[in-house]
Amino acid sequence: MQKDRELTEELAPALEQEEATDPFSLGGETFTSRLILGTGGLPSLEVLERVVRSSGTQLVTVALRRVEAAAGSAMLEVLNRCGVRLLPNTAGCQTAREAVLTAQLSREAFETDWIKLEVIGDDRTLLPDAVELMDAAEQLVADGFTVLAYTTDDPVLGRRLADVGCAAVMPLGSPIGSGLGIRNPYNIALLREEVSVPVVLDAGIGTASDAALAMELGCDAVLLASAVTRAREPVQMALAMRQAVEGGRLARGAGRIPRRWLAEASTSMQGLPEL
């Protein structure tokens, strides 16, 4: 725990400086951190605060639940103190009607028209229901919401969501909480080419290399929760994710070498002595 704090304090200024050179625009707002953090699954508010600070995130997801099961105002005080923007979600909704009502309730509660739209079609995999998702997205955009749509990695569906006015398309890498990483990098790269709005890899990230890959594939940001909140050392993993997102982003910009079937020597053969 002490080590986490020292690491964060040591690395944060350099990371912040690097991130600030490469901001991105989402829903008309500018962010320098490309890591969006889900808050579910942490053991305490103290850890939540340290995770948020260590990750460098500027946008965190939150939810609405029946008051008997909700976290209480202390959670919002922590997030407020960290200076992050709140992104309410519609987690648990299975129909467009439920999702639209949840978004409207969230707008009332959080006083924001931003919504992470999530409409689940299957209990086992928590995969999105494409038909209900499209319906909800259209209704919410028409109602003035800034819709960040959690979706499958289908490039055509992604394009349709962008076409109806979603502010971001957020394809899954693999099922929520599975930690299986990005199962179809090809689709993520295709989806990136299909739409001009930001693409945020959302769900399935297991470890830092998954987050780096998302950025290398051209995603504008990564949204993750479980990979950090359920890690053995959440604060350390948050810092790892922050660096992975930054590393992947830099690598994307740097232009990777083409893959080759066979070797290409990096040391010149010219002047090779005859021994």
Partner: peptide
């Protein structure tokens, strides 16, 4: 009636 409040979530 549903009386709802903020909580943590992905």
């Amino acid at each position: 009636l549903e009386v709802l409040a903020p909580t943590a979530g992905g």
